[in-house]
Protein backbone atom coordinates (compact mmCIF):
# COMPACT_ATOMS: atom_id res chain seq x y z
CA UNK A 1 0.00 0.00 0.00
CA UNK A 2 1.34 3.43 -0.92
CA UNK A 3 0.80 6.73 0.77
CA UNK A 4 -1.58 9.19 -0.87
CA UNK A 5 0.18 11.54 -3.28
CA UNK A 6 0.65 14.98 -1.81
CA UNK A 7 1.88 16.66 -4.96
CA UNK A 8 1.26 20.39 -5.07
CA UNK A 9 1.92 22.84 -7.89
CA UNK A 10 5.08 24.77 -7.00
CA UNK A 11 5.33 28.26 -8.47
CA UNK A 12 8.19 30.76 -8.42
CA UNK A 13 7.09 34.39 -8.56
CA UNK A 14 9.99 36.75 -9.20
CA UNK A 15 10.72 40.31 -10.26
CA UNK A 16 13.80 40.73 -12.44
CA UNK A 17 15.52 44.09 -12.71
CA UNK A 18 15.42 47.24 -10.69
CA UNK A 19 11.79 48.33 -10.50
CA UNK A 20 10.42 48.03 -6.98
CA UNK A 21 6.72 47.89 -7.80
CA UNK A 22 5.83 44.54 -6.35
CA UNK A 23 2.10 44.91 -5.67
CA UNK A 24 1.18 42.95 -8.80
CA UNK A 25 3.61 40.12 -8.02
CA UNK A 26 2.26 39.90 -4.47
CA UNK A 27 -1.37 39.87 -5.62
CA UNK A 28 -0.61 37.01 -8.02
CA UNK A 29 1.40 35.12 -5.38
CA UNK A 30 -1.48 35.48 -2.93
CA UNK A 31 -4.10 34.39 -5.49
CA UNK A 32 -2.09 31.26 -6.30
CA UNK A 33 -1.62 30.53 -2.60
CA UNK A 34 -5.37 30.80 -2.09
CA UNK A 35 -5.84 28.42 -5.02
CA UNK A 36 -3.72 25.81 -3.24
CA UNK A 37 -0.30 26.33 -4.84
CA UNK A 38 3.00 26.46 -2.99
CA UNK A 39 4.42 29.80 -4.05
CA UNK A 40 8.08 30.67 -3.65
CA UNK A 41 8.29 34.43 -3.52
CA UNK A 42 11.77 35.85 -3.96
CA UNK A 43 10.99 39.56 -3.83
CA UNK A 44 12.31 42.45 -5.90
CA UNK A 45 15.62 43.18 -7.65
CA UNK A 46 16.44 39.69 -8.85
CA UNK A 47 19.04 39.06 -11.52
CA UNK A 48 18.23 36.51 -14.25
CA UNK A 49 20.85 34.20 -12.69
CA UNK A 50 19.19 34.40 -9.27
CA UNK A 51 15.77 33.60 -10.73
CA UNK A 52 17.06 30.61 -12.70
CA UNK A 53 19.01 29.29 -9.73
CA UNK A 54 15.95 29.60 -7.47
CA UNK A 55 13.83 27.77 -10.08
CA UNK A 56 16.41 24.97 -10.14
CA UNK A 57 16.87 24.60 -6.37
CA UNK A 58 13.15 24.81 -5.64
CA UNK A 59 12.28 22.43 -8.52
CA UNK A 60 9.26 24.54 -9.44
CA UNK A 61 6.66 23.61 -12.03
CA UNK A 62 5.86 27.21 -12.97
CA UNK A 63 7.84 30.47 -13.19
CA UNK A 64 5.95 33.77 -13.26
CA UNK A 65 7.86 37.00 -13.89
CA UNK A 66 6.54 40.46 -13.10
CA UNK A 67 8.00 43.64 -14.55
CA UNK A 68 6.84 47.23 -14.77
CA UNK A 69 9.99 49.00 -15.88
CA UNK A 70 9.77 48.31 -19.60
CA UNK A 71 12.95 46.21 -19.59
CA UNK A 72 11.14 42.94 -20.30
CA UNK A 73 12.71 42.42 -23.73
CA UNK A 74 16.12 42.95 -22.15
CA UNK A 75 15.68 40.80 -19.07
CA UNK A 76 13.24 38.01 -19.98
CA UNK A 77 15.47 36.52 -22.73
CA UNK A 78 18.29 36.40 -20.20
CA UNK A 79 16.11 34.60 -17.67
CA UNK A 80 15.17 32.05 -20.35
CA UNK A 81 18.83 31.65 -21.30
CA UNK A 82 19.89 31.12 -17.66
CA UNK A 83 17.13 28.52 -17.22
CA UNK A 84 18.35 26.68 -20.34
CA UNK A 85 21.93 26.83 -19.12
CA UNK A 86 20.79 24.90 -16.04
CA UNK A 87 18.68 22.40 -18.04
CA UNK A 88 15.53 23.75 -16.43
CA UNK A 89 13.53 23.20 -19.59
CA UNK A 90 10.27 21.76 -18.32
CA UNK A 91 8.72 24.71 -16.47
CA UNK A 92 5.61 26.64 -17.47
CA UNK A 93 6.54 30.29 -18.08
CA UNK A 94 4.23 33.27 -17.79
CA UNK A 95 4.70 36.97 -17.23
CA UNK A 96 2.82 40.09 -16.33
CA UNK A 97 3.11 43.82 -15.85
CA UNK A 98 3.29 46.85 -18.12
CA UNK A 99 3.95 45.07 -21.39
CA UNK A 100 2.86 46.53 -24.76
CA UNK A 101 0.60 44.35 -26.91
CA UNK A 102 3.16 44.55 -29.71
CA UNK A 103 5.68 42.61 -27.61
CA UNK A 104 3.43 39.59 -27.04
CA UNK A 105 4.64 37.68 -30.10
CA UNK A 106 8.29 38.07 -29.12
CA UNK A 107 7.55 36.86 -25.59
CA UNK A 108 5.59 33.88 -26.90
CA UNK A 109 8.51 32.97 -29.13
CA UNK A 110 10.70 33.01 -26.05
CA UNK A 111 8.44 30.43 -24.43
CA UNK A 112 6.08 32.56 -22.33
CA UNK A 113 2.69 30.92 -22.62
CA UNK A 114 0.75 33.89 -21.28
CA UNK A 115 1.16 37.61 -20.73
CA UNK A 116 -1.12 39.14 -18.09
CA UNK A 117 -1.66 42.87 -18.04
CA UNK A 118 -3.13 45.28 -15.47
CA UNK A 119 -6.81 44.58 -14.84
CA UNK A 120 -6.51 40.81 -15.33
CA UNK A 121 -8.85 38.82 -13.08
CA UNK A 122 -6.68 36.70 -10.78
CA UNK A 123 -9.03 33.78 -11.42
CA UNK A 124 -7.88 33.84 -15.04
CA UNK A 125 -4.25 33.48 -13.89
CA UNK A 126 -5.14 30.64 -11.51
CA UNK A 127 -7.05 28.86 -14.27
CA UNK A 128 -4.11 29.26 -16.63
CA UNK A 129 -1.71 27.76 -14.09
CA UNK A 130 -3.96 24.80 -13.28
CA UNK A 131 -4.66 24.13 -16.97
CA UNK A 132 -1.05 24.24 -18.09
CA UNK A 133 1.31 23.35 -15.25
CA UNK A 134 3.22 20.14 -15.77
CA UNK A 135 3.50 18.90 -12.24
CA UNK A 136 6.76 17.02 -11.98
Amino acid sequence: MTAPARTKIRVLIAKPGLDGHDRGAKVVARALRDAGCEVIYTGIRQTPEMIAEAALQEDVDVVGLSILSGAHLELFPRVVEELKKRDVDDVLLFCGGIIPDDDTKQLEDLGFQAVFRPGTDTREIVQFVYDNARVS
Binding site: G36, M50, A54
Partner: peptide, 22 residues
Protein backbone atom coordinates in the same frame (compact mmCIF):
# COMPACT_ATOMS: atom_id res chain seq x y z
CA UNK B 1 3.25 27.22 7.00
CA UNK B 2 0.57 25.86 4.65
CA UNK B 3 -2.92 27.29 4.77
CA UNK B 4 -5.20 25.06 6.83
CA UNK B 5 -8.03 25.97 4.44
CA UNK B 6 -6.62 25.96 0.89
CA UNK B 7 -3.37 24.04 1.62
CA UNK B 8 -1.51 26.67 -0.39
CA UNK B 9 1.58 28.41 0.97
CA UNK B 10 3.80 31.43 0.49
CA UNK B 11 7.41 30.36 0.93
CA UNK B 12 9.43 33.49 1.59
CA UNK B 13 12.57 32.38 3.36
CA UNK B 14 14.78 32.92 0.30
CA UNK B 15 14.10 36.67 0.41
CA UNK B 16 16.41 36.98 3.42
CA UNK B 17 19.15 34.87 1.86
CA UNK B 18 19.82 36.79 -1.36
CA UNK B 19 23.55 37.09 -0.80
CA UNK B 20 23.85 33.31 -1.05
CA UNK B 21 21.71 32.99 -4.17
CA UNK B 22 24.52 32.21 -6.59
Amino acid sequence: PSSPFTHGAILGDRIRMQDLAL
